[in-house]
Amino acid sequence: MTPFLTPRYLITAALIVVLVACTLAAARHVRSFLRRNGLPVGLFVVGAVVFWTIVLIVAPQIFMLDLSFRFNLPRSQLGGPQDVLTFQNYRSLWIGPDGQSWNLLQLRALAVTLAGSVFVVLACFAICYPIAFHLAQFAGERRLRLALALLIVPYWINEILRAFAFRILFTDQGLINRLLLESGLISQPVDFFNIEVPLYTGLVYAYLLFMFFPLYSALRSLPHEQIEAARDLGAPWWHIHLFVVMPAAKAGIASGATMVFMLCAGSLAIPQILGGTRTLWFTPIVYDRFFESYDWPQGAAYAVMLLLTCIVVVLTVQRIFRVGLRDVVR
């Protein structure tokens, strides 16, 4: 069998056909777009968008999806009689290798990853909200620029480097333990890694800005007079925040929370660098499938499952808070 007739290629080909059909269906818009922007610019934009969606987004994901339903076969058997579709890779996520017992470790890792990411989202929000609110509503031009610079500049340092710096900070001999020992608050160094303080601090720090900016821009567009109006009507501060400011900033909160949650659940380097020996995070497990056990199909299946559960969580939460996808991308 020629390799070009495998489902993988057929699916991709079908997808490309669909996308091209969509483009043709939108031809009227495309043509007016080309007219408005001039042919060279217009062609570049249309071409870039099509290339971006098909080659960089859709195609790799399709390959991954397809891969996740296959056995891990040696190259010589690819496309052979044994290369058939299977759910085995997904099942191995929750059924242990003996085919009977639950694979509790992996399920726990997934649950911890989701719950931990929710915690990171909440922590990011708790830190960003007061700062963003103050800067958006009260700060003058100069203080605003200074604060934004202070927020952004640390992120010029590479993420890995920052993570290692954090690791040094939290070791037995690290700055924090030394300070605590010196001040006499503790008599023994605290094993922060065992209680996952560095992991969560690192995650929160890494994704803080992804919460800050959507939140800031949402709060920025809230007219200050609305806050005054609420206050004038007798509202105490907490009431104003809960019922006037936060509903108005809902879209910003939702997009920040979604972004932080997704990035956090998919974070690999930080759990690996800042996690303790007992730390469970799902991404290192996926990583191991790919690069330790060289079982790409299984890795693909795990990655797909992680993505799906994250999407389910995000959509559920959005449902609860009645935020549409439209709000999130606004």
Partner: peptide, 29 residues
């Protein structure tokens, strides 16, 4: 404080709460 004065201000920009219905706006106080 402004929230404890027996005054109510109608702003030039009105400053109605866009996330609330007409009735909820009126009932906010």
């Amino acid at each position: 404080g402004a929230n404890r004065r027996p005054t109510a201000l109608v702003f030039q920009s009105l400053a109605l709460f866009p996330t609330m219905s007409v009735a909820d706006n009126i009932g906010y106080g």
